[in-house]
Computed example of a mutant assay.
Amino acid sequence: MTTLIIKDETASGNILNEIRIKVENERTTLKDIITARVLTEVQVYNSSKPEYFKGLIQPSDTEKTLNGFRVKKRKSIDGEQQVYVALDAFMRNGFFVIVDDEQITDYDQEILVSSETKISFLKLTPLVGG
């Protein structure tokens, strides 16, 4: 079992969030990493149900704020649904994943990981304007 540190970064390199996940094998896929990340975030939230969910994907029935996603009714979040939305968002270029300075474009691509592997998620923010 390997523990990986995943960082959410802006395009300019600012770190917005950091999460630790565990993967079972040193050979894994990006799909497995995304799944482990999302399920870990959901588990952390569901164990205490704080006012804000800090995660990759905005759950339904939440409001986006500077502190994360404000959960209107502090109910459990469906991890399976969050994984589905996250994988769909990746396929639609809603975020990019960089592993050891290389962008991964196929979530089925096999990746060799160790505790030293650097993984960054870059989430695109839409421009606001008229």
Score class of each variant (00 low, 15 high):
residue 96 F to I: 01
residue 39 L to V: 01
residue 42 V to W: 03
residue 51 E to G: 02
residue 22 K to L: 06
residue 103 Q to W: 04
residue 71 V to Q: 03
residue 77 I to K: 05
residue 36 A to S: 14
residue 54 K to G: 01
residue 17 N to L: 07
residue 46 N to M: 01
residue 50 P to H: 10
residue 29 T to R: 14
residue 20 R to G: 07
residue 17 N to D: 13
residue 26 E to T: 10
residue 61 D to Y: 14
residue 26 E to M: 09
residue 100 D to E: 10
residue 65 T to M: 15
residue 47 S to Q: 14
residue 86 A to I: 03
residue 101 D to K: 15
residue 57 I to K: 00
residue 74 R to V: 00
residue 30 L to E: 10
residue 83 V to T: 07
residue 61 D to N: 14
residue 57 I to Q: 04
residue 62 T to Y: 07
residue 30 L to S: 10
residue 62 T to F: 08
residue 95 F to T: 00
residue 19 I to S: 13
residue 102 E to F: 13
residue 44 V to W: 08
residue 36 A to I: 02
residue 37 R to C: 11
residue 59 P to H: 11
residue 28 T to V: 12
residue 46 N to F: 00
residue 83 V to A: 10
residue 21 I to V: 15
residue 92 R to S: 11
residue 94 G to Y: 02
residue 36 A to C: 07
residue 53 F to L: 09
residue 28 T to Q: 04
residue 50 P to R: 10
residue 68 G to C: 08
residue 81 Q to N: 08
residue 55 G to R: 04
residue 31 K to L: 07
residue 27 R to P: 00
residue 76 S to D: 12
residue 67 N to P: 00
residue 64 K to M: 13
residue 48 S to C: 09
residue 70 R to Y: 15
residue 35 T to P: 05
residue 63 E to G: 00
residue 97 V to E: 01
residue 70 R to L: 15
residue 88 D to F: 12
residue 15 I to H: 05
residue 61 D to H: 11
residue 77 I to W: 09
residue 37 R to S: 06
residue 30 L to W: 14
residue 76 S to F: 01
residue 58 Q to A: 11
residue 34 I to Y: 11
residue 62 T to N: 09
residue 60 S to Y: 05
residue 21 I to D: 08
residue 90 F to M: 06
residue 84 Y to A: 13
residue 74 R to Y: 02
residue 57 I to E: 03
residue 79 G to V: 04
